[in-house]
Design a protein around this nucleic acid. Structure first.
Length: 884
RNA sequence: AGGCACGUAGCUCAGGGGGAGAGCGCUACCCUGACACGGUAGAGGUCAUGGGUUCAAAUCCCAUCGUGCCUACCA
């Protein structure tokens, strides 16, 4: 392969397809638990099997990939554990929809057949996202890919369930839970998403039994009155101190209800009187228990009024509300209704309004687990980055309530509990064949399955073979870092913390790196219903994966939402192309040397060599530090700045002269050697961010063998840091810019060469500029450089004041003195404006007295420098004006 | 109701007590033998508002306005 085959512009499509399979074939992603290298491990947040790669996954996995590739290059044994989540409700919904097309429900098929169908679906369509992650370049160890319903992981689930049960941390009981009437299952508190809903607050009269007036209750849920078993008021409420009767008659139903007094009732809300429906409201449930109230559940699992709802039986809850209100209106019992804004839970899977319903479910007693998880972060075993999320984590961990883990669906880990006719409940790792109490053989397994998050909570260790003691666990647990969005901090991170500490005795990860949500260019959350989703696959097709990844990294500033913009992606596409062309240039020149580069580089390095080596050292260090700190945007920014604005803009331009100078073969070889070295390092610095193009270019570099993935990260070389070269280059670059500016402002044709006269007031500046006059000439199109004493400077010239030198471009006949005067005046004004704050500071006695000496010195130096420049510019201005 | 962020160039965003930055866009010139997905030179900002701390505030503190998000059982 030679640069003859390197196209003029980068075409991502063909390159990307080639390298991913190369990496996989060569097992470059595979982790070796017996390696002696230090471990670095990440478990992927397992996407749903039903999932399609969206931009949030893309961000999340790009960041993980950057970390993994970087750590590999730095000599770590890296395990990036991949896999997918069985996503109980979501997956079941998908397959139910599929069989619905055949006119079937899951009940037509029966549990076993239905689950077979789900597995079949999973084999066929599930895990599409895995290939999409590969498109993204994710360097996961696919040989270890896991699925939460795998046999091994299922064993871990059973083990955990049984142990928690045996310790009394799992229990079963009747409580109010969040019920989704569409999915027909219980949900945890987290899975019920609160959304503001405009509802009504209805004031309803409950007449006293004795006919002496009524009590008015206020409610947002009039339809649940069918299940009312009391009315409650606050014992302190003067309005209700002396009531006409101690019982009311429930309208529409006719049941007599006691009036209970409880301080729970707020005095200042509604009417101060509360209807109590223990079967359909969590607080009412508590009140009911406390006061020994009857519990009447009036709704079925689909949210329809059941036979206990009398005339309303069969009506959907919303129809029932309407009808109840109508009937109350007719009877004159609806005193008033007002608009009322309140937060109502919605199913996180299907957005159906959640129904709080009394039901028998399994729960995890989380308090003791949460206490440990809280402590682990407090004492720094796990660090949350950025730290602002720590508080949120604490808040949740301290206010946590028991976790409802049973789901009335079929797809998932079936709860390992069996019921015997004798009433015994057997919870066991292995399927029992007879009752442990009565010996009976007629056992029925619990039909409920576990919350999907129960199994994903075990992910960091179940994927590594737990409950067995495996080499993987030994080497890679606890994992180094977890990268995820804050939206699942509670759902998942918190649960992994609890489970990891409980069962491994150690936190599951040392760091939690929390990144922002990706939004569209207007800051809206991307969603299918809004139609503002950006499909990462299409983006990758259009701009290339590397450009996309680089954009994500550049946007990933901590603690902020990301507004994705296509313009930015296009900008970084251009950057990738810039790298490509820098490579094109590099290779053309390396080949021109017949592959001899590096052999004859004994010559002392030139200024630009020293400078670029110094700069790339700093850049490598900066990028490394940024990645280590999860400041991905800083990493991207630093390498972008270096590659484009130092390496390409200046260094490549500067070495064209020596590279093209046939008369100095040694100088050519030396330039080639540095170029090859610096470019090789640049590719390696870029690799974690843009793996594909860097691999392609790496493998085309002469003398390179093997993947860039195996190449070492360019660690710092303190000997190459060169302050003198950096300062010298500053001066040279400023001189070149000054000449270019003068040329542009004077309208000198780009091709025309101009003479330059320099008048020095510092010897170091003289040595630097005259010693590198050739560089000046080639980059600023200069015909000659002349050194004159200050007094002999050309008069009819445009000029610029630099540090230690005044630069003149004599433009006899060309120079427009009026324009030059304006330019100088502008320059002076700009300098004055810039230096004004410093001047002010130096007149401030407090500043001189209290500011650190080095700050004062710095300000003085700044003013001195500016004064020198301004003075020289004013001299020039006066001269120019004299010709007007 | 509480909590957490955020208001910086036309747009999208970095920065975070001592010289206002980037990308895109804009203006002018240039197809210069890596690159027009390019080059060179420019224009553009009282860093939301009002106070305070400090020798020094875009940066720290308080308040106000605006925006977004999270948590929450006043029916």
């Amino acid at each position: 392969m030679t640069s003859a085959t390197l196209d003029k512009s980068y075409d991502p499509q063909q390159v990307e397809a080639r390298w991913y399979s190369y990496w996989e074939r060569n097992a470059l992603f595979t982790a070796d638990p017996s390696s002696l290298r230090p471990p670095y491990s990440i478990v992927i947040p397992p996407p749903n099997v039903t999932g399609q790669l969206h931009i949030g996954h893309a961000l999340d996995n790009t960041l993980q990939d950057i970390l993994c590739r970087f750590k590999r290059m730095r000599g770590y044994e890296v395990l990036w554990m991949p896999g997918t989540d069985h996503a109980g409700i979501a997956t079941q919904n998908v397959v139910e929809r599929e069989i619905a097309k055949e006119g079937l429900t899951r009940h037509d098929l029966g549990r076993e057949k239905f689950i077979e169908r789900v597995w079949k679906w999973k084999e066929e369509y599930g895990g599409k996202i895995i290939n999409q992650l590969k498109r993204l370049g994710a360097s996961c160890d696919w040989s270890r890919e896991r699925f939460t319903m795998d046999e091994g992981l299922s064993r871990a689930v059973r083990e955990v369930f049984v142990r928690l049960y045996e310790e009394g941390l799992i229990y079963r009981g009747d409580y109010i839970i969040n019920w989704c009437p569409r999915c027909h299952t219980a949900l945890s508190d987290l899975e019920s998403e609160h959304e503001e809903v405009k509802g009504g607050l209805y004031h309803i009269r409950y007449p006293f039994r004795n006919g002496q007036g009524w009590i008015t209750v206020a409610t947002t849920r009039p339809e649940t009155m069918l299940g009312d078993t009391a009315v409650a008021v606050n014992p302190e409420d003067p309005r209700y101190k002396n009531l006409a009767d101690d019982k009311v008659v429930l309208p529409l139903v006719g049941r007599e209800l006691p009036i209970i007094r409880d301080s729970y009732v707020a005095l200042d809300f509604g009417t101060g009187a509360l209807k109590v429906t223990p079967a359909h409201d969590p607080h009412d449930f508590d009140l009911g228990r406390k006061h020994g109230l009857e519990v009447i559940r009036i709704m079925d699992d689909s949210g329809r009024i059941n036979e206990l709802g009398g005339a309303y039986a069969g009506l959907d809850r919303f129809e029932a509300r309407k009808k109840v209100l109508e009937d109350l209106q007719v009877q004159g019992l609806l005193e008033k209704q007002q608009e009322h804004l309140h937060a109502v839970g919605h199913c996180y899977r299907c957005k159906t309004m959640v129904e709080p319903i009394l039901s028998k479910q399994w729960f995890v007693k989380v308090e003791p687990l949460a206490a440990e998880a809280l402590k682990a972060v407090q004492q720094g075993d796990t660090r949350i980055v950025p730290a602002q999320w720590t508080k949120t984590y604490y808040e949740w961990m301290t206010n946590i309530r028991d976790w409802c883990i049973s789901r009335q669906i079929w797809w998932g880990h079936r709860i390992p509990a069996w019921y015997c006719e004798c009433g015994e409940v057997i919870v066991s790792r292995a399927t029992p064949d007879k009752c442990s109490k009565c010996g009976g053989g007629d056992l029925r397994q619990e039909t409920d399955v576990l919350d999907t998050w129960f199994s994903s909570g075990l992910w960091p260790f179940s994927t590594m073979g737990w409950p067995d003691q495996t080499p993987e666990l030994k080497k890679f647990y606890p994992t180094s870092c977890l990268v995820t969005g804050f939206d699942i901090l509670f759902f998942w991170v918190a649960r992994m913390m609890m489970m990891g500490i409980k069962f491994m005795g150690e936190v599951p990860f040392k760091d939690v790196c929390i990144h922002a949500l990706v939004r569209d260019a207007h800051g809206q959350k991307m969603s299918k219903s809004k139609g503002n989703v950006m499909d990462p696959l299409i983006i990758m097709d259009q701009y290339g994966t590397d450009a996309f990844r680089f954009t994500l990294a550049a946007f990933a500033a901590q603690g902020r939402d990301i507004k994705m913009s296509e313009e930015r992606i296009a900008g970084y596409r251009n950057f990738v192309n810039k790298i490509w062309n820098a490579a094109r240039f590099t290779m053309m020149n390396l080949e021109a040397g017949g592959g001899q580069a590096g052999e004859d580089d004994k010559l002392a390095p030139t200024l630009e060599d020293r400078w670029i080596l110094s700069r790339i050292n700093r850049t490598a260090a900066e990028v490394a530090a940024a990645i280590d700190d999860y400041r991905f945007n800083d990493a991207a920014g630093a390498v972008y700045q270096f590659a484009w604005h130092e390496f390409c803009d200046w260094y490549l331009e500067l070495i064209k002269a020596p590279l093209y100078n046939q008369e100095d073969p040694a100088g050519q070889a030396r330039a080639r050697a540095t170029l090859a070295e610096v470019f090789s390092r640049l590719l390696r610095i870029l690799h974690p961010l843009m793996p594909f193009v860097t691999e392609e270019l790496w493998q085309r570099l002469p003398g390179v063998e093997g993947s860039i993935m195996k190449a070492p990260w360019p660690e710092g070389r303190p000997d190459e840091i060169d302050l003198e070269a950096e300062a010298g280059m500053e001066l040279i670059m400023s001189a070149i810019s000054a000449v270019r500016n003068i040329r542009a402002e004077a309208g000198v044709a780009p091709g025309k060469e101009v003479p330059v006269v320099l008048s020095f007031d510092q010897d170091s500046a003289r040595r630097m500029l005259l010693g590198h006059a050739g560089r000046l000439q080639s980059l600023a199109k200069i015909s000659s450089v002349e050194d004159v004493p200050a007094g002999r400077a050309p008069e009819k010239a445009a000029s610029a004041a630099l540090a230690g030198v005044t630069l003149y471009v004599p433009l006899a006949g060309l120079v427009d003195f009026a324009a030059e005067a304006a330019r100088l005046a502008k320059e002076i004004a700009k300098l004055e404006k810039e230096i004004a704050p410093s001047r002010k500071k130096l007149t401030n006695e407090g500043f001189l007295a209290k500011a650190p000496a080095e700050v004062v010195d710095k300000e003085k130096a700044k003013v001195g420098e500016a004064d020198s420049k301004i003075g020289r510019l004013q001299d020039s201005l006066a001269k120019v004006k004299s010709f007007l």
